[in-house]
Design a protein around this nucleic acid. Structure first.
Length: 333
DNA sequence: AATGTTGCCAACCGCGCGTGT
DNA sequence: TACACGCGCGGTTGGCAACAT
């Protein structure tokens, strides 16, 4: 388990690469492949350590690297994968062709993290923030008007939609804690699960919402419930999507009266056996399964006009919605 | 125009893992 | 079994550019 004595060599250049150095590195790798990174600098005539060469190649010079801004789909996919995988940047990068882990990591830290915070979502857990401080911003979200440029507008609308759903979840939780199980289940079932157009931000809200109270699957996606222990009766169910286990919460409402989570289980909620604290079923996060699941996420996303698009079914603005909110608030009171 | 501040990102650093001897 | 090597990963930093004062 020895450590690499990286860059201990004296006189090795550090810092920004010059075009000449880039050219040497590209030419050498194109002709010979990188082979041993440690030996590459000498063979290529570069006064750099192998590690520096590898980073320069993998993060910048590789011919298949996609430059430029992240598009909206990429953003959503990053957020979704991060909710599943955490800071596994290389794994996330493997799902975004042409993007490097470093690039994704930087983009997360400079853009997406802030965006989630503004939406009142903890960027680490992907749960809504518990400090309620973000509530101060909700009036702005709800009063949002299109006085911005269109690109910013589009992103803000998505953010606002998710924030609204998060707020709805808070209300549902409050209801569940203050009213009888039967009444709140009915209310949730009617107002939330009953929506025929509930779709997905990624896939988690849909799956949680539609499976939550054991009612029929109301949307257009088909899920197969399976048992991961050969049909045993201990409740270890795994939701399968095209043969791949889904890492999202499947609430057992027969044993507890819980409210659906609108976000996937974060790594922090898992114990060593990948079972989360609510006894919900969590993916066995082998790489293959994680990749498989990520593929499914992408696939499902492609089936939707936008990842948030289906949430439009939760129309918070029309008169019917007002009725829903009134009902919810009455239940709370 | 000069100065200070902030945001961004390429590159570096240190650690852990897999493999070979 | 212990150690060295090679590599990849995630966290952090330094420098540049854009923006604000």
């Amino acid at each position: 388990m020895g450590r690499s004595p990286c860059c201990e060599e004296t006189g090795v250049k550090k810092g920004p690469w010059t075009p000449e150095e880039d050219k040497k590195l590209i030419e050498y790798i194109n002709n010979n492949g990188h082979g041993s990174w440690r030996r590459l600098p000498k063979l290529a005539g570069l006064n750099r350590c192998g590690k520096s060469c590898r980073l320069r190649w993998t993060n910048y010079l590789r011919p298949d690297i996609k430059r430029g801004r992240f598009d909206e789909d990429e953003e959503k996919l990053i957020i979704h994968l991060h909710s599943i995988l955490g800071n596994k940047w290389s794994t996330i990068a493997a799902r975004l062709p042409g993007r490097t882990d470093n690039e994704i990591k930087n983009y997360w830290n400079t853009h997406l993290r802030k965006k989630l915070l503004q939406m009142g979502i903890d960027p680490v857990t992907h749960q809504k923030r518990s400090d309620l401080g973000f509530l101060a911003g909700i009036p702005n979200i709800f009063a949002f008007s299109g006085n911005l440029d269109m690109n910013a507008l589009k992103l803000q609308v998505d953010a606002a939609k998710l924030a609204r759903v998060q707020l709805l979840q808070s209300l549902i939780q409050l209801i569940a804690s203050t009213s009888s199980p039967s009444s709140s289940d009915l209310l949730i079932n009617h107002h939330v699960y009953g929506s025929s157009s509930l779709g997905s931000f990624g896939v988690s809200p849909t799956q949680d919402l539609n499976l939550g109270v054991g009612n029929t699957n109301n949307n257009n996606q088909e899920f197969l419930m399976e048992s991961n222990n050969g049909g045993g009766d201990n409740g270890n169910q795994v939701m399968m999507i095209n043969g791949c286990p889904c890492p999202y919460n499947i609430h057992d409402h027969s044993s507890q009266h819980s409210t659906p989570s609108l976000v996937p289980a974060s790594p922090e909620t898992l114990d060593n056996n990948n079972i989360n604290i609510n006894n919900n079923i969590i993916i066995d996060q082998t790489q293959d399964q994680a990749n498989c699941f990520a593929d499914e996420c992408i696939g499902i996303s492609k089936n939707s006009n936008t990842s948030f698009g289906d949430w439009d079914g939760l129309n918070f603005d029309d008169s019917n919605t007002d009725l829903c909110w009134k009902d919810i608030l009455e239940q709370i009171s």
